[in-house]
Write a protein that binds this DNA or RNA. Sequence first.
DNA 1: CGCTCATATGAGCACCTCTTCACACGCACG
DNA 2: CGTGCGTGTGAAGAGGTGCTCATATGAGCG
Lengths: 123, 123
Amino acid sequence: MSTSSHARVVDADRVSAVMASLPPEPAIEGLAQVFGLLSDPGRLRLMAALLEGGEMCVCDLAAACGQSESAVSHALRLLRLNRVVKVRRSGRMAYYRLADSHVRMLFDLGLTHVTHDEAGSRD
Amino acid sequence: MSTSSHARVVDADRVSAVMASLPPEPAIEGLAQVFGLLSDPGRLRLMAALLEGGEMCVCDLAAACGQSESAVSHALRLLRLNRVVKVRRSGRMAYYRLADSHVRMLFDLGLTHVTHDEAGSRD
DNA sequence: CGCTCATATGAGCACCTCTTCACACGCACG
DNA sequence: CGTGCGTGTGAAGAGGTGCTCATATGAGCG
């Protein structure tokens, strides 16, 4: 059973060491989820708007980001459930703002990477 | 035409200011693409392995990350096309390594966020 | 009080993504 | 020089994601 179907391994020691050093599954899953939230242009625009605007209502966000209010509401719900944004309600208005500064750091770091090296598609 | 269908805007000045400050479309798209690469657990494990292992071949990567070699090859191709990893060929082996340190920074920053505040799902 | 406005939500659909399966390719080794 | 091994790639299917449309909710206003 040790040499099963094709357990091809070149450097078994390194494989073991790497396996031991990998972050636990929950961390990996959480990481993927966070980056997944940042992987949509629409949500990215919303977050960029909030980075600049500080606190904005749904309709202004929709107008500024060029999206339908329904799409914005759906997107904000996702971000809300993941603690990326916070809401303040006033009458029938809902004012959204970023929950913490992590988004700004990730945003800026990614932007630096993107603008510095296009890394777009070619090979 | 000014009050068209429902161009609801509360703070027109802020909307204009925010629109002017939004990163250009290509930057937004590129950002989304970069974060999209980081939004998959499988690729995340591969990158984490390379962060620790330095340089590894496809089969070791597959063994360490618990994925099929085909899946790993596909994932590495994506990462390669986006300049996230580099290849060194030696005989029939292919040794992969990270292309730059941006991944490490994004990874660590995201990991800090995730482990510090689970931000998983609840509301 | 009934209407409208700002937002929230659910269902449905189109699209994209990731995995597996099958096979092609090049290099090493007998 | 043919066979096996490590890797690369294409097609296809399952699953997930984000949009729109329709409708609900709750607050303000006449």
